[in-house]
């Protein structure tokens, strides 16, 4: 008797506190994901989704036409991630070692553009990089080039846009792991005969590897999917997986295939996170955002 009384007494408050979060998660996370999963097994008659179970959408993923798009996507994603590490690490390191005031200033500098709509920011780049844009005009006036060069609508421009949009996702986890690094490790290394370079290679880098890895996950996956970057900066010339998915849901009107492409991306994320966890990564480092 006593036990059931106590159990009831706890269940109701627990339900009332947890249910808003649970409902939110079910409605906005679980339900759409399940719907996409469900969709990916259905067929299409060319216009509408037909309730007919099929695995063709998954077979279709390996169609040779798409392999080039995958390759192109992975190339862009790889270089985006690499550049983000190379640019982001020094920035994050500097920020972690800076004084309180400087740290705040750097954080604000990082976050303010982040809060602005990324489409607007990317269109801003267009005015800089276009044929009549600032860079071309400037170079022409200096006499370095005679004719405007094509900067925009190249793979390089897409890469630039990706790095520009995604770099905070690299800097923040890196900052968290460098900031957490106990300064006495560096002093100990220095004491035991390692100069700054050796200390960085043997101590700082291995101990902040979790930050690099979690930053890479958070950049690699979105850069496969950010179709609008390739649309704006690449002029639709270079197709990415993201563009492919967008096409299936809009122009192509093939929702089930779009859904199976999305499932492939989700599956990739799961693999990467699992590898990260298996290699001893801290899941909390992934949640810095």
């Amino acid at each position: 008797m006593k036990r059931s009384y106590r159990a009831r007494n706890k269940t109701i408050p627990l339900l009332t506190t947890v249910s808003p979060v649970a409902i939110w998660l079910i409605l906005l996370v679980a339900a759409p994901l399940l719907y996409v999963l469900f969709l990916s097994f259905l067929s299409t008659d060319g216009y509408n989704v037909v309730f007919l179970f099929t695995l063709d959408n998954y077979k279709n993923l390996f169609n040779p036409t798409y392999l080039e798009i995958y390759a192109n996507s992975f190339l862009i994603a790889f270089f985006t991630t690499a550049i983000c590490i190379l640019v982001g690490y020094p920035f994050a390191y500097h920020m972690a070692r800076a004084g309180k005031r400087k740290k705040t200033v750097m954080m604000v500098m990082l976050m303010v553009p982040f809060w602005t709509n990324s489409l607007i920011r990317l269109n801003g780049w267009k005015t800089l990089l276009g044929k009549t844009g600032f860079v071309n005009t400037f170079l022409q006036n200096l006499g370095i080039i005679r004719e405007p060069v094509e900067i925009l609508y190249t793979r390089g421009a897409v890469l630039l846009g990706m790095v520009y949009i995604l770099i905070p996702y690299m800097i923040l986890p890196l900052f968290a792991s460098i900031d957490k690094l106990d300064h006495s490790f560096l002093e100990a290394s220095n004491d035991l005969g390692a100069n700054k370079v050796k200390t960085f290679l043997h101590v700082t880098l291995p101990l902040t590897f979790a930050g690099i890895f979690s930053g890479s996950i958070m950049i690699f996956i979105p850069s496969l999917g950010y179709f609008f970057v390739s649309d704006i900066m690449g002029g639709g010339k270079s197709q990415l997986i993201g563009n492919l998915i967008e096409t299936q849901f809009k122009a192509g009107n093939n929702w089930p295939f779009g859904a199976s492409l999305s499932m492939m991306l989700i599956f990739l994320i799961l693999i990467m996170v699992t590898v990260y966890k298996k290699s001893g990564g801290d899941m909390e480092d992934l949640g810095v955002m």
Binding site: D182, S184, F185, E187, A188, S189, N190, D191, L192, G193, A194, N195, V203, P206, L207
Partner: peptide, 20 residues
């Protein structure tokens, strides 16, 4: 001089053993 250029070594309060 740098710490490693002195004939002196330190045992740190938190030990500072390299965790990796």
């Amino acid at each position: 001089k740098e710490p490693f250029e002195r004939n002196v070594n330190t045992v740190f309060q938190s030990y500072a053993l390299f965790p990796h």
